[in-house]
Structure formats: structure tokens, C-alpha cells
Write a protein that binds this DNA or RNA. Structure first.
Length: 921
DNA sequence: CACTAACCGATTTTT
DNA sequence: TCGGTTAGTG
């Protein structure tokens, strides 16, 4: 880049006052922000600790810091410690230093301590929440009618977090700073939406019924309480729903329900603190409360300059926090409403769309009882960045269409209005060739692979191509197919296999098979089978489980392997997807090498869940591969070629019996009543309210937009023939129907070679890595772990490609490898099963280098430490490798060496016998 | 043409 | 459980 353009320069140099920058895709946002930071530092009398820069992810914060350090002449150490971070780590730091008594602000007599942990795994948190909620039920019998209504307790936790994101916080006495006013909703805003959907629709002869009236056809199939108006009454005599129902539904009695939410919310915070953890939502909440109430601390912590990147991803409480964190009103928010796709993470797109409005509203709110916001909240300027450095003009214009495409056949969009909100982007770079295409075929997966093969047969490489999908599921299907054809591919982003539904079902059955009265197992299974909370409790107490389920458990007991077990379970539930296959693969592999019994298998899954382990479907280190990603994870990235697969709208809403929605506030969709038949009745009021809110596809369109704007020069849309979504159909492009033929590609050599010895079947296994044998003396000198890893990586790469050594260690490795005859393999995985005291043990490890030279096999381990150091310890490790290799090649002469890479000295290993290895344990 | 009953298919992920 | 689509009815 030849320096900032006019708009970028404006953003860089105008630093005093409040600015909002509209930074569309490819407009050089990160570049501009880092220059702005440098500009402030160089031209104002401030140091890095006076400038707060907030980003969305830790990764982004790191990148930003790197850039700024490179651009500024300022003290590098000070910049490393500069407040360039996410909201969460900023709040965490504040709480660690000043937050000990923050809970007291809410009336909780507990403390945040340095040992308070941040709950990162939401599955574990849900388990904690369920534990909490069960004790809550015992303590609060008065809410019994509400308990009957709750299907999934974890949804209640979700509801609490939604409230937290909006800045609605409970205290021992009531609600923090009257935040409960938001619980009631906003009638005027609701009425606006009501009127809109209740507008009669113009038809061929006069007016047709309003959308709302049409939607209410299901009203008669619902089961409402006695006070509900009947079908004819609510739909009215004309083409509209009578207007009086708007206020009649909106203003319903909610006091008891609100009290219940308050109590659950407040006591859960108490519970979390008593268990010594907080979640991410509480982290922000406590920091916010602290900065609200401790005026001295706020003055002390606030910053002269505040910048927030990706502002479209912030939520309400973060907006307010930002206002509190600024001392002077020098605030700059940068974002793009068109790229707001994280509402399910509680992001509020209105923060940026209604920036001015919210700015005024929030500062008024924060100043109600004390003047916290002392600066002017007038906006100094709006700066649109309007040059796109990423994509060609064709792609830029085409993607913009995506924001105005109808998602359904009925949907009507006010395109002029949308257009007026979009900053038109002009492409600056000429990339030469550009192409936009759309294809359909019977098999979309084959279609995509066919297109990729077509592309790489020309000028393009696999590495230029990214396939973006809306769901991980489709991505994994594509991955599987690509691997089948040998097309080089990488799925970006790991999969938390054990948090998927198949895994939870499987785990529940394992529990039940292990212990026929397992409460956790049965609770989950009964819940899945559709039993309500109260019924589940009854069944568990009386231990009278459904007979067909008991029968299935007996069948499972006879399964011979975990794979068979899992397959039975998945078949029973009609689960059949790549997650199931992945699970079976992982579990069967574990089983094959360790013969875990049921209890151990349960533990294995639990540990995986606990650790939030993700399983990378492909760990290929190859560079030239095409990438598969979900659209959400592709945000911020760019590729020469983007193939956008599986476009369409996501599943409709998920209704929960208790929920919070703007602008109707807190609502109870189900009501338990014994008036007549005891039953969970539908709430006719919230039924009508919800019909007025539905059908908002804006975020789906933005998702579509984000995906398309990742492309630099080539963009292709694909769809399954006959199942094209309205997005696909309504875009201004002619789709080509093709019959794809995919050719098999020569298989790529695997980067790791498997070398496994047939194991002996003995129960109760344990697993060790060969490094567990080694006790380092600590005096090895050496250059540390990272350096060692680098040298090892060099060896692996040198064997495969021809890379140049970069230091003396790597040169010695190269010289040694060059001196060898025969086949050389690097990074060979090996496994050695042993038996000690009737217990099976596994040692595994990675052999750095394996040299197959006629009848001789040499195995070599590289050590970057001081030559001669730790030799005895290394001998133990190498002995394990020796026996593993000898097990596979019993007829060959096996030699083991340690190569000290510092001076190239080679030491022959005195191999220990198996018994000696065992004795060392 | 307007309306309705019956059927179908249903997430994304960071802190 | 939801809403959209489709096929069928008046």
C-alpha cells in the first residue's frame, strides 16, 4: 500500500471527540486503526497506557499489537503491555486487581479472589447450572408452576446470559440501577411491528388478509387457557387482527415470573461464586458494576483515547462499558453493520445501526443518579471508508446484492432503504481476471470437487481456493468426499466431537449400561425421549424405566466392541452423519489400543468434554490444499477463489418456554394451570406477540454477504439441484446445471507413518508416553523447547522437501541425513505394548528418524541440548523405540542412536531390555 | 385467487 | 417446536 487514502487519513488524524467509521470488507480497517494508534502516540502527549484499543478476539488483539509495534518508534516494552485487548481480558484484569469486593455491589457477601476461575466450557457450566437449579427447586417451592413448564434447564442459563448481555443485572434487593425496566419491553416499538404485519395485503381483487391474520391460522390448534379469546374473535371479521389485541397481549401480568427469573439469576451468581467460578458474562457484569459504583476507580482506570474494532459484534453492556472507560470522550468505533453475524453470541447490531441514538440513551441512563459521563456525546463525525482493496469491482457489486435478496417467496424488502444505509465501495486494485458463476447439480459435493479440479487445471492452485459453508456438517461431508478422491484439502477449525448430540446420547447409554439406575444417564435419555421434567423425576425416584428402553439397554450389553455399541445407539436414534462416523473412529481407535471398559470409556468421554477437546479432522501439514470453513469462522479472511456452498436460510426459530426478546421483553410462552385439566397451556398473549416479531432474515443476508466478500477474484455459488434456496434463486445470475465428473487424484504421501504393534488383550490398561520415563537432570543447557521443536520440524521437512538449514543444528541434521543410504522416514509414530503385574501398559512416542537400509534399520532421536547430556535418560526412551521397531521388524538388525545436533555427535544406544524398562517405572 | 391442512426439515462460535 | 412450502379445496 502506498499510504492511506483520503478517508483513511481522516480517520487517522481526527482523534478528538466521538467518531464512528463505517469500514466495509477489504477497506483496510486494521491497517488504518494501527496507523491511528501510532498517530495519537506520536502527536499527543500520551503514552500507550492512555490508549485503550478493544478487539473482538485475542488473536486480533495480538495481530494489532504486532502491527503497532512495527509502526511505532515508541518503547517496545511499553507497547507490549499496552491495553490492546478484548473486552473480556480487560475486564478480567480489572477484576483481578480491583474486583475483590465487586460482588458486594450486588449485595452478595462473597468475594472474587485470585483463585476464582473463569468457566470456559459451556457444557460443564450447564452441568453446574443444573446442579444449582435442582437445589433451587428445593429451596423455592413457591415457583412450582414454573418448574413444570421448563423443558430444558440449560435454556434458563441461556436466558440469564441474554439478560446479562443487555445489562440487566439482579441484586439482593431488586435490580441493579433499575435495569428491570428492560424486562417489560417497549410497547411503542412493538406496536410499530404489530401494525406493520397487520397491514392488509393488496391482492387481485381488493385487499387480502394481513400477514399476521394469516399466521394465526394455527391459533385453533393450540391449547390455551380459558381466558383466551376464541379463534374467530382474535382473527377479526375483516382482513386484520383487531388492534386492541396489541395492548391486550403486551400488557400481561408478569410479576411472579419476573420474580422467579430474578431469584434464579441472583442465586446462580451466588452459587457460581461459592463454587469459585465466574463465566464470561459475569466477568463483564462485575466490571461494569464496579466501574458504575466506584467513582474514584472509574476516574483512575478510564482512558484518554478509546478505540473499538468490530463494533458490530459488541452488545449493550459492552457499549455502556466503553462509555464508562472513556475519560474525555475521545471515542472511535469502527465496524460494519453488514458484517454483523454474531447475534447468537448476544451481539446487538443496533449498537452500530442506532449508534447515535444509543449513545444518547445510554449516557442519559448512566447519568441518572450521578454524572458519570462528563463529556459531550455529540458525534464529531462519521467516516465511511469506501475503497475496497480486496475484491474486484464485479465481486464487490455482486455481493452487495446479497444484502437485498429476498429470503423467501413472500418476503418483501425495502431495497431503497437498505441501499441508503450502504456505503458504496469501489475497487481500487485491478486483479486482472475475475469471474462470478453459479452452478447446480444433483450432488452438490461432487459439483464442488468438480469445480475445484477445473480451476486447478488452469492457472490456480488448490491453496487459492476456499469453500465456505454455513454449517460444519456440510463442510465435513465435503471433506470426506475430497479425501476419497485424493484431492488435497484441509478443514479449518477443529470439531468438539464430544459435545455433539451423538456423543451425548452415546454417553447416556453407556451410563445406563454400566449402572442400570444411573440417574444422569436416564435423565438425559428420558429428556431426549420427550418426558417433561416432573415425569423424569417421578421415573427416577421409582426406578420404573420404560420397558422398551430397558430392552435396548440389554441389547447394548451384548455389544462386543465400542464401535458396535455406538453404531447400535446411533441407528436407534436415526443419527447418521460425519460426527457419528468420527466418534466411532475415535472411540474404536482408543478401544483397540487400550480396551477401555465401560466405566473407563465414560470417563474418557467426560474428560474430553471437560477439556473441550477438539478433534481436527485433518492435521495435514501440506500447504497447497483447498480449505473448507464455516462462514462464521472465515470472517476477516480473504481468498483468491471462494466457492460458497449450501447457501440458504437456517432453521427457523427455536422456541423456548421462557424467553427474552426485544422489544417484547420477558415472556412466558407456556403456562401451567389446573384450571380445568392440569396441563402446560400455551400462552395466547405471547403466541400473538411472537407472530409479530418473526421472519427477520437480515442476519442470514449479512452472513451471505460476509461469505461473498471473502473472494478476491473468483466467486462461485453452488446448490443442490431442486433444493436451491431463495437466496440462490434471487441473485442476479444464471445458474448452470452440470453433471460433474470428479477424477481421482494420485494419493498424497502421508506426513506421518503409522507403525503399530499388534497388542495383547489384557484388561485395565494404562498409557504412558516414552518421555514419561525420562528424568532430565536440568543441566543439559540447550536452547529450550521451541528451538528444539524447530530443529525437529526441519528434519521432517528436509526429508520430504528440499529445505535449507538455517542454523548449525539444522546443518548437522542435514549432514547426517545426507550420509544415509536407503529409505528415510521422519516423525514415525510408534506404540509399544508391555505387561506389568498383569496390567497392560502402552508406551508411545514419535521416532524422529527411521532409516531402512537393507537388513539394517537405524532409529535416531535428535537432541538439541548440550552434547552428552542426559544420555542415560535418553537411552530409556530410545530403548522403547527399539523394542517397538523390533516388534514390527523382528528379522532385521535394529540400531538406535542419539544425535546431538549442536555438534553432530552420534551416540550409539545401550539398549535396555523390556524388563529393565519396566523396572524403571 | 384466497385460504388451509398436511408435510418437511431445522445453526453459527468467541470470550 | 417452529415456519415455510406444497397440494388440495372452495
Amino acid at each position: 500500500m502506498s499510504g492511506p487514502n483520503e478517508q483513511q487519513r481522516e480517520l487517522i488524524t481526527k482523534t478528538e471527540g466521538i467518531y464512528i467509521a463505517d469500514a466495509g470488507p477489504g477497506t483496510g480497517k486494521t491497517y488504518t486503526i494501527s496507523l491511528r494508534y501510532a498517530h495519537i502516540l506520536n502527536n499527543k502527549d500520551v503514552s500507550p497506557e492512555d490508549i485503550l484499543l478493544i478487539t473482538f478476539t485475542n488473536n486480533a488483539a495480538e495481530n494489532m499489537k504486532e502491527r503497532i509495534i512495527n509502526k511505532c518508534d515508541h518503547n517496545k516494552a511499553a507497547l507490549r503491555d499496552a491495553p490492546i485487548s478484548t473486552f473480556h481480558s480487560l475486564c478480567n484484569n480489572i477484576l483481578r486487581e480491583y474486583g475483590f469486593e465487586a460482588p458486594e455491589i450486588l449485595g452478595i457477601h462473597d468475594r472474587l479472589t485470585s483463585s476464582t476461575e473463569v468457566m470456559e466450557n459451556n457444557v460443564i457450566e450447564e452441568q453446574e447450572f443444573v446442579r444449582f437449579f435442582n437445589s433451587f427447586i428445593e429451596k423455592h417451592p413457591e415457583h412450582v408452576d414454573l418448574y413444570r413448564v421448563i423443558g430444558d434447564q440449560a435454556e434458563l442459563l441461556g436466558l440469564i446470559k441474554t439478560l446479562g448481555a443487555k445489562g440487566i443485572i439482579p441484586t439482593s434487593e431488586g435490580w441493579f440501577r433499575n435495569s428491570d425496566r428492560h424486562l417489560d419491553g417497549d410497547f411503542d416499538k412493538f406496536k410499530e411491528q404489530f401494525d406493520k404485519v397487520n397491514e392488509p395485503v393488496p391482492g387481485a381483487n381488493g385487499f387480502k388478509q394481513s400477514l399476521l391474520r394469516g399466521k394465526l391460522t394455527d391459533y385453533k390448534n393450540k391449547c390455551f387457557t380459558k381466558d383466551a379469546p376464541d379463534y374467530l374473535e382474535i382473527r377479526g371479521e375483516g382482513v386484520q387482527v383487531p388492534e386492541r389485541f396489541a395492548s391486550e397481549c403486551f400488557y400481561e401480568e408478569r410479576e411472579e415470573f419476573k420474580q422467579f427469573i430474578h431469584d434464579v439469576y441472583f442465586e446462580y451468581i451466588e452459587y457460581a461464586l461459592s463454587r469459585n467460578y465466574i463465566n464470561f458474562s459475569l466477568m463483564i457484569m462485575f466490571a461494569f458494576a464496579l466501574l458504575c459504583e466506584d467513582h474514584e476507580l472509574r476516574e483512575k482506570l478510564s482512558y484518554q483515547y478509546v478505540m473499538i474494532d468490530e463494533f458490530q459484534d459488541t452488545n449493550e453492556i459492552q457499549f455502556k462499558l466503553a462509555l464508562l472507560l472513556s475519560s474525555t470522550g475521545n471515542i472511535c468505533v469502527v465496524g460494519d453493520w453488514k458484517q454483523s453475524i454474531f447475534s447468537f453470541q448476544y451481539a446487538s447490531v443496533d449498537n452500530i445501526l442506532l449508534f447515535e441514538e444509543r449513545l444518547k440513551e445510554y449516557s442519559r441512563e448512566l447519568n441518572e443518579d450521578h454524572k458519570r459521563i462528563k463529556y459531550s456525546t455529540d458525534i464529531e463525525g462519521k467516516i465511511p471508508l469506501d475503497e475496497n482493496f480486496r475484491s474486484t469491482q464485479e465481486i464487490t457489486d455482486f455481493s452487495q446484492q446479497g444484502l437485498m435478496v429476498e429470503a423467501t417467496k413472500k418476503e418483501k424488502l425495502e431495497k431503497e432503504e437498505i441501499l441508503s444505509r450502504i456505503t458504496h465501495l469501489s475497487a481500487v486494485k485491478n486483479f486482472g481476471e475475475t469471474e462470478i458463476g453459479a452452478y447446480t447439480a444433483e450432488d452438490e459435493v461432487e459439483l464442488i470437487l468438480w469445480k475445484i479440479e477445473q480451476l486447478v487445471s488452469g492457472e490456480l492452485d488448490y491453496g487459492d481456493i476456499a469453500v465456505l459453508t454455513r454449517t460444519r456438517r456440510f463442510g465435513l461431508r465435503l471433506l470426506k468426499a475430497a479425501e476419497k478422491y485424493g484431492i488435497p484439502v484441509a478443514y479449518e477449525g477443529g470439531i468438539e466431537l464430544f459435545l455433539t448430540k451423538p456423543s451425548l446420547v452415546l454417553l447416556a447409554w453407556l451410563r445406563v449400561v454400566k449402572d442400570e439406575n444411573s440417574k444422569r444417564g436416564w435423565a438425559q435419555l428420558l429428556d431426549l425421549a420427550g418426558y417433561r421434567y416432573a415425569e423424569v423425576g417421578h421415573i427416577l425416584d421409582n426406578r420404573r424405566y420404560p420397558t422398551d428402553m430397558c430392552k435396548f439397554a440389554r441389547k447394548l450389553k451384548r455389544a462386543k466392541t465400542i464401535g458396535e455399541f455406538a453404531r447400535e445407539v446411533f441407528d436407534k436414534y436415526g443419527l447418521d452423519d460425519p460426527f457419528c462416523d468420527g466418534m466411532i473412529e475415535v472411540l474404536q481407535n482408543v478401544y483397540n489400543s487400550t480396551y477401555l471398559n465401560t466405566a473407563e470409556m465414560i470417563n474418557f468421554i467426560e474428560v474430553n468434554i471437560e477439556a473441550g477437546n477438539t478433534y481436527d479432522v485433518d492435521s495435514s501439514t501440506e500447504e497447497n490444499v483447498f480449505k473448507i470453513q464455516t462462514i462464521h469462522s472465515s470472517k476477516g479472511l480473504e481468498y483468491p477463489v471462494v466457492i460458497l456452498a449450501d447457501v440458504g436460510k437456517g432453521g427457523g426459530g427455536f422456541g423456548s418456554p421462557l424467553e427474552f426478546r426485544d422489544p417484547i421483553g420477558l415472556r412466558q410462552n407456556k403456562i401451567y394451570s389446573e384450571d380445568g385439566m392440569p396441563f402446560n397451556y400455551d400462552n395466547w398473549r405471547s403466541h400473538l406477540l411472537k407472530k409479530c416479531l418473526s421472519g427477520d432474515y437480515d442476519e442470514e443476508r449479512r452472513l451471505f454477504y460476509v461469505a461473498m466478500t471473502r473472494a478476491e477474484s473468483y466467486l462461485f455459488l453452488t446448490a443442490e439441484e431442486g433444493k436451491e434456496s431463495q437466496f440462490f434463486v434471487n441473485m442476479d445470475i444464471e445458474a448452470q446445471s452440470v453433471e460433474p465428473v470428479v477424477e481421482k487424484v494420485e494419493p498424497v504421501v502421508k506426513s506421518r507413518n503409522e507403525l503399530t504393534v499388534e497388542a495383547v488383550k489384557i484388561p485395565s490398561p494404562a498409557k504412558y508416553t516414552s518421555h514419561a520415563l525420562i528424568e532430565y537432570s536440568g543441566s543439559g543447557g540447550g536452547m529450550g523447547m521451541d528451538y528444539g521443536t524447530k530443529v525437529h520440524n526441519f528434519a521432517e521437512r528436509y526429508v520430504k522437501d528440499d529445505v535449507e538449514p538455517e542454523n548449525i543444528d539444522e546443518e548437522n541434521v542435514k549432514d547426517y541425513i545426507d550420509s544415509l543410504d536407503g529409505e528415510v522416514r521422519a516423525e514415525v509414530v510408534c506404540l509399544l505394548p508391555l505387561v506389568k503385574d498383569g496390567r497392560k501398559l502402552f508406551f508411545d512416542g514419535v521416532i524422529d528418524l527411521l532409516n531402512l537400509d537393507g537388513d539394517t534399520i537405524r532409529l535416531v532421536d535428535f537432541k538439541t541440548g548440550r552434547p552428552g547430556a542426559n544420555l542415560q535418560e535418553y537411552f530409556k526412551q530410545l530403548s522403547v523405540y527399539y523394542h517397538a521397531v523390533k516388534g514390527v521388524y523382528p528379522d532385521k538388525e535394529v540400531e538406535a542412536y542419539v544425535l546431538y545436533t549442536a555438534d553432530g555427535s552420534l551416540v550409539s544406544v545401550d539398549v535396555l531390555s523390556v524388563d529393565e524398562i519396566l523396572a524403571k517405572l
